[in-house]
C-alpha cells in the first residue's frame, strides 16, 4: 500500500510517501484503522484535527474500506498565501 503525503504530513513523517509492507497493510481494513495505525507510528500526525484522506483520488471518510492495492493520500489543510 502506498501512502502519498502532502503538506505538513510530509514534514511530520520526513518523507513524501510511505510504502506499507503487505503484512501491515493486510491488517488495515478501513481508513479509520489506517489513520490509527499511522497515528501510532507517527504520533505527530495525531495533532492534526482536520486532515482529509483520499483513496484512489477520491475523498474518503473513516468508514471507507481499503486494500493493499489502493493508493492513499494524506491531505492536511494548508494556509499560506
Amino acid at each position: 500500500m502506498t501512502i502519498l503525503l502532502f503538506g505538513i504530513t510530509k514534514d511530520i513523517v520526513g518523507s513524501s510517501s510511505i510504502s506499507l509492507p503487505i503484512s501491515s497493510a493486510n491488517k488495515l481494513k478501513t481508513v479509520k484503522e489506517l489513520k490509527n495505525y499511522l497515528g501510532n507510528t507517527y504520533p505527530g500526525l495525531n495533532k492534526l484535527s482536520s486532515m482529509a484522506v483520499a483513496v484512489n483520488n477520491a475523498y474518503a471518510k473513516d468508514s471507507v474500506k481499503i486494500d493493499n492495492f489502493d493508493e492513499i493520500a494524506l491531505i492536511p489543510p494548508v494556509s499560506g498565501g
Partner: peptide, 18 residues
C-alpha cells in the same frame, strides 16, 4: 466539506514560518 473544523494555530505553519 473538505475540512469541517478550523485547525488550531499550532497545527499548520503559515508562509512566514514555513
Amino acid at each position: 466539506c473538505l475540512y469541517p473544523t478550523v485547525p488550531s494555530e499550532d497545527e499548520i505553519p503559515n508562509c512566514s514560518e514555513h
